[in-house]
Amino acid sequence: MKVMIRKTATGHSAYVAKKDLEELIVEMENPALWGGKVTLANGWQLELPAMAADTPLPITVEARKL
């Protein structure tokens, strides 16, 4: 699914347009965010693609819901 990742004042957030859902990312498998699992505030887990740590945000990526 397409997910937009952006930086907020409190960390990172994910927006899933198909579900009209925006949630804070509360847990990251990798400190650089990319190439691992993230957990959203509502409990969803997404697998993000591997990208460079300095990838500019906001960005829309293809993520997989676990």
Rank of each mutant, 00 (worst) to 15 (best):
residue 66 L to F: 10
residue 45 Q to A: 08
residue 5 I to L: 05
residue 19 K to Y: 15
residue 28 M to L: 07
residue 7 K to C: 08
residue 15 Y to Q: 09
residue 41 A to G: 09
residue 1 M to V: 14
residue 8 T to C: 09
residue 65 K to L: 15
residue 54 D to N: 11
residue 8 T to F: 06
residue 42 N to S: 07
residue 13 S to G: 06
residue 29 E to R: 05
residue 17 A to K: 10
residue 3 V to R: 00
residue 27 E to W: 15
residue 36 G to A: 07
residue 53 A to V: 11
residue 13 S to L: 12
residue 20 D to N: 13
residue 45 Q to V: 15
residue 8 T to K: 07
residue 30 N to F: 12
residue 60 T to P: 02
residue 11 G to F: 04
residue 39 T to V: 12
residue 46 L to T: 02
residue 49 P to T: 03
residue 2 K to S: 12
residue 35 G to L: 04
residue 5 I to G: 00
residue 1 M to T: 08
residue 61 V to C: 04
residue 61 V to G: 03
residue 61 V to S: 02
residue 44 W to C: 14
residue 19 K to D: 15
residue 63 A to H: 02
residue 22 E to R: 07
residue 44 W to S: 01
residue 56 P to S: 09
residue 2 K to H: 11
residue 37 K to C: 10
residue 2 K to R: 13
residue 24 L to E: 14
residue 12 H to R: 07
residue 21 L to M: 13
residue 48 L to R: 00
residue 54 D to P: 05
residue 37 K to V: 14
residue 60 T to F: 11
residue 66 L to S: 08
residue 55 T to H: 04
residue 27 E to A: 13
residue 4 M to K: 08
residue 12 H to G: 02
residue 14 A to P: 01
residue 9 A to L: 12
residue 15 Y to C: 08
residue 10 T to V: 12
residue 61 V to D: 00
residue 18 K to Q: 14
residue 41 A to Q: 08
residue 41 A to P: 03
residue 45 Q to E: 12
residue 4 M to C: 12
residue 21 L to I: 14
residue 19 K to A: 15
residue 58 P to D: 02
residue 42 N to H: 02
residue 24 L to R: 12
residue 6 R to T: 10
residue 66 L to I: 14
residue 26 V to M: 07
residue 35 G to H: 03
residue 45 Q to H: 09
residue 54 D to R: 04
residue 58 P to S: 02
residue 42 N to E: 02
residue 61 V to K: 01
residue 8 T to A: 08
residue 64 R to N: 09
residue 41 A to M: 09
residue 22 E to I: 08
residue 6 R to Q: 10
residue 62 E to R: 12
residue 36 G to Y: 05
residue 19 K to C: 15
residue 7 K to V: 08
residue 5 I to Y: 01
residue 49 P to A: 03
residue 40 L to Q: 00
residue 64 R to A: 08
residue 21 L to Y: 08
residue 55 T to D: 02
residue 1 M to H: 06
residue 40 L to E: 00
residue 43 G to T: 01
residue 64 R to E: 07
residue 22 E to K: 05
residue 55 T to E: 01
residue 20 D to G: 13
residue 33 L to K: 02
residue 64 R to M: 11
residue 3 V to A: 01
residue 29 E to V: 06
residue 51 M to K: 06
residue 23 E to M: 14
residue 49 P to H: 03
residue 28 M to Y: 12
